[in-house]
């Protein structure tokens, strides 16, 4: 078994100190150590975006990030975003535009959308499509997700 490492980081605005195994992913830490389950496991190799989180402002796949690499950084998950005005706006837009079906990909898409909008508030349809190319959805066919993001800007 790998050594445990003490890390100190900010999670959704709250300082956290945790001991994590050196080989653990940030995804496993969030779900199994911290107990925040909004960040989803979809593939474990960065191909589906269900585990999208924000670290120091940018979005990453939590499954590709070492938990130890959270040390000293600012991490935001869907639970944190949902409690902010931009998160509320995105949620309302996803709901209103019918962008949610089974909902398993939704937290990752909302996270990615928040980053996309923040970075490029004037994003048009093509830029929104490109912006979510790393998030797979099996239910909606993406159309309503694209509309929801456009509607939340």
């Amino acid at each position: 078994m790998s050594a445990k490492v003490e890390i100190d980081f900010t999670l959704n605005g709250v300082r956290e100190q945790r001991a994590v195994a050196a080989d653990m992913s940030a995804l496993a830490m969030l779900r199994d150590v911290v107990g925040l389950t909004g960040t989803k496991y979809g593939c474990g190799e960065g191909e589906c975006g269900a585990c999208t989180i924000r670290v120091d402002g940018v979005t990453l796949n939590a499954c590709l990030m070492f938990a130890v690499d959270c040390d000293g950084r600012e991490v935001t998950t869907i639970e944190g975003l949902a409690a902010t005005p931009p998160g509320e706006k995105l949620r309302a837009s996803f709901v209103e535009h019918g962008a949610v079906q089974c909902g398993f990909c939704t937290p990752g898409l909302v996270m990615q959308a928040s980053h996309l909008i923040e970075k490029n508030p004037g994003a048009g349809e093509e830029e929104i499509r490109r912006g979510i190319e790393g998030n797979l959805c099996r239910c909606t066919g993406y159309r309503k997700i694209i509309e929801a993001i456009a509607g939340a800007k």
Partner: peptide, 25 residues
């Protein structure tokens, strides 16, 4: 050695990479 982790993590999970004693970020 890892930096972003985007190659090391999936390769380790798939068993294509064995971790050495030191994980160097």
């Amino acid at each position: 050695v890892f930096a972003g982790g985007t190659d090391v993590m999936p390769q380790a999970n798939a068993g294509r990479l064995r971790f050495q004693k030191t994980l160097l970020n």
